[in-house]
Structure formats: C-alpha cells, structure tokens
C-alpha cells in the first residue's frame, strides 16, 4: 500500500493553509483541523516583493 493511501486510513490531523473553506468543511466532518492564517508575501505583489528582498540582504 502506498504511503498516501496508508495515511488516509489513519486518523487525520490536518493543518490547512490557504482557502479557509477547506478548513470549514473538514471541521464539519469532525476531522481535527487547524487553519493557519497565511497569506502570500506582499499579497503576491511582485514589485513589492522585489523591494523587500533588496532590503533583506
């Protein structure tokens, strides 16, 4: 049995990043889940990421 299939036969403990709806739906199905309040750096604004990188050297 592949590792991934083995995993899904066990009790899941999920850490969710990104769309909060994944977290909500798992919680409704009584799956233990933690939602991480994560967002991409500078909201994904490439110009701002470039500027920030210049200042982190």
């Amino acid at each position: 049995m592949s590792k991934i299939n083995k995993l899904f036969r066990e009790e899941l403990k999920v850490v969710n990043l990104g769309l909060e709806s994944f977290h909500r739906e798992l919680r409704e199905k009584k799956v233990e889940v933690v939602h991480i309040n994560w967002r991409p750096c500078a909201g994904g604004n490439k110009r701002m990421i470039e500027l920030l990188n210049k200042l982190k050297k």
Binding site: N45, M48, L51, L52, K54, L55, K57
Partner: peptide, 19 residues
C-alpha cells in the same frame, strides 16, 4: 505604505547603499 517603501529603496539606491 507601498509608495513609502519605493521611496525608501530609491534613497538607498541613490546613496549607493544598495543596488
């Protein structure tokens, strides 16, 4: 805040502190 960051980097580039 974005415009302030642009200006901050520009000042440092002008002074040759960063490239």
């Amino acid at each position: 805040f974005e415009d302030a960051l642009e200006e901050f980097v520009k000042i440092l580039e002008t002074e040759g502190i960063i490239k």
